[in-house]
């Protein structure tokens, strides 16, 4: 995806590229802070294990916001089309839509085993959420590829008739 991002801009000069990269990283940092705050609102300890919470937030924004920026760029119109109207183009946009939701839902579901009394080392905050996030991300990748394949076939058939 990063490659696609670079490819798209390689005809132009370097300055806008750097500008874009700076903007993108700024967005990632901002979203990391947002996710950190969100985790705290969800009940993560404020001071204790704040490094872990921050890493979790970073991972979340890398699996959600970063791919979106790479694919959708800064065009808010495309963002709203993908996320608000749920009508992405068949391709990278669909993948991004799926992985974003997948990793968020995965991280959300990852919090469920924490209160269980199994006393396993992975039940400690935020390990299970990190695992859930990654699993959700991967599952979304798989599902989106299947979905795109299916839709592509359907549309091909549709075009022929």
């Amino acid at each position: 995806m990063v490659r696609a991002f670079i490819q798209r801009t390689d005809n132009q000069s370097v300055v806008p590229l750097v500008k874009k990269i700076v903007k993108a990283s700024f967005a990632v940092v901002l979203s990391t802070v947002c996710f950190h705050v969100l985790a705290i609102l969800y009940g993560a300890p404020v001071i204790e294990s704040s490094a872990e919470t921050f890493h979790f937030a970073l991972l979340l924004s890398v699996t959600t916001v970063l791919p979106c920026i790479c694919v959708l760029g800064q065009d808010s119109y495309r963002w709203s089309r993908v996320f608000l109207h749920n009508s992405p183009s068949l391709g990278a946009e669909t993948v991004v839509l799926f992985t974003t939701y997948g990793s968020l839902v995965g991280a959300w579901l990852g919090a469920f085993p924490i209160p269980l009394d199994w006393d396993r080392p992975w039940q400690v905050w935020p390990i299970s959420c990190v695992i859930g996030n990654l699993i959700g991300y991967m599952a979304a990748l798989a599902v989106s590829s299947v979905y795109i394949y299916h839709k592509y076939n359907v549309s091909k058939k549709f075009k022929l008739t």
Binding site: L72, D75, S89
Partner: peptide, 9 residues
């Protein structure tokens, strides 16, 4: 049909 996103928009 379109691949290029800007155009597509």
């Amino acid at each position: 049909t379109k691949r290029n996103s800007i155009e597509e928009t």
